[in-house]
Design a protein around this nucleic acid. Sequence first.
DNA 1: GAGCACTGC
Length: 712
Amino acid sequence: MDSKYTSMGIENGAKTNGVKRKNGVEHIKVKKIKLANEGTVAHNIKVETNGHNNNNVHENKIVNEKPQDLQEARRQLPVYMVRNRLLEEIKKHDTMILIGETGSGKTTQIPQLIHEQRLEGAGAIAVTQPRRVAAITIALRVAAEMNTEIGSIVGYSVRFEDVTSPRTKVKYMTDGMLLREAILDPLLKKYSIVVLDEAHERTVSTDVLFGIVKLAQKERNEKKLNPLKVIVMSATMDVDSFKKYFNNCPVIYLEGRTYPVTIYHSKMKQEDYQYAAVCTIFQLHATAPANHDFLVFLTGQEEIETVMYNIKQIAKEATGPPIRVCPLYAGLPPAKQLQVWRDAPPGTRKIILATNIAEASVTIPRIQCVIDTGVVKERTWSGGTGAERLSVRATSQAACWQRAGRAGRTQAGAAYRLYTAADFRARPMHQTPEILRCPLASTMLLLIAAGVEPSTFPLIDTPPPDSVKASLSLLKELGAIDSEVNPKLTVIGKKMSTFPIEPKYSKVLLCAPEYNCLDEALSLIAVLSSENVFHTPMHKREEAIKMKQKFLSPLGDHITLLNVFKAFSKAPLKKQWCKENYLNHKNLTYACEVRQQLLAICLKLNMTVTSCGQAYDQVLKCLLCGLFTNCAWQRGGAGGARAAGRYVTAAGAAAALHPASALQALRPPPPALLYSELLVTGRSYMLTVSAIQPQWLQQVAPEYARRCRANR
DNA sequence: GAGCACTGC
């Protein structure tokens, strides 16, 4: 296999000329390395979760399994073998770390074992997950294993859906959900045991929960309340830093059950990973049995579409079985995602081109071969300008192992890394935790609402001081806190913290009654809190743009979005309507759910829902109440022909109107703008933009306007 | 005149 793989590039050289890349032909040379030789084992493959987007499929699957089969399966799990020792440790220690390889059964079994012994006493067991699908499917599985109905002893709680009752003792929930509960009850008094699962993923919510449970444990001890037990569970983890953070608590290792994965590294540095990926695919395709499916990790939609096109072109002349190519990324409509799970006809090879959605969120069975480009798209944030940046970066070693492990789920497999072994070793062990690279305003507001002083809150990794400062200063500007030092919530800040959205957006909602436009503000903020509602497939771009025209407002993208949402709400056959109009049905449906939730909170706060009708100026002024820090002015003042389309933000950064903006066609370009997002790709672009009257800022935020003028 | 990875409340 080794020698064939290295020489195949030469044999197929002529055929790979079809690859649409600028570089010349370059042959990939790989070195065969056994995982065992590296002193490492295949890493965490989740057996508990089925990332399938259609929950019903999983639900039925669970119901169909017989209780005795479920019990037999339980007894086969590695964690079951060591259950007595494990329970002893849990009884003995307030806090412990559990490192469990994939297939150990820790997520499904440990809460059950605890409950069987009634270790939770009068309280309940909370088990957190970073993803809602995981929380739901695991809860269903455990309920079936315990032969109870979901929502009774075993339940789950995720946004928009709470399937628990006062009797619930084992509660699976998203980490964000437990964090929301912590605002109302920072001591988490309902729970006697909190299990933080998938801790290695280091989501902002998990990181904050680490501190919350630590403080709750301490205070409950001091107040002589019932003690809180904490179990941190993870696949692979930076054990030393975790152990140190949790006061040298014990660490227990659980064995996993996975199949061996052979790792091959590229012998030479690959200048163009897309090209290298296509070459590798066809080198392997010529010799691998037809029933071996490939999983290729790429960075995004556009890249996946390009590589897919190339594969289809080359496949026409390549030797080997017929090929079926399946793209897989989060933005793909659910129906199109489904074909990834459908078996290819006998004698056909399935090649899945995926983003890192296939790394942990979604599990594809029967992958024998992983091709890892070793790159990922990562979002970072600069507190100074408020701009976000999306850049392609090398993955961490942990992510490399995670990707490789996807080949060893159902049998032994192989992983082809398109980077050298030296490159691999030079990579950081773990990805930068999210909390170090994202905006912190909502996290800060949540902490302050939970009665915590941000500067003393024990976080396992300290965010950059600039980020903290920028976030607190924004909260002060919005009037949510009284001071940046030792901050306390204001009356409005307290209200803001009850909304599960960005503080900027909750401020908009709270200002809306004043402008008579809460009806419109709810819809707009719901859409802005969701993902892009426009669907633009590469090959039907023209048509998609044409359909967008009928929603366009000369006032800008915000009113355009409002038009889309209103039309969607009125449409009787929503799915069909979305398809015809090139709109994303999933994201618009999500926006509707968000709107309902926000409306319920507004009504609880005794706010009056009224509509401003066609007086959209009111909506934009109201929007400015929360987004006044997101203003930009035309460079060199209005009217300068050369300055057209070039703006400078309130933070003093140069920025341009995004070409997809509704304002792009407007002549002359508006002198002042309000944007929702600032994204740096090649240049700095303002996304989702509306035109405003410069004097509005003066009316809405006079003090801020004064400072802006001084800085300009 | 450019293209947004992935989660979550």
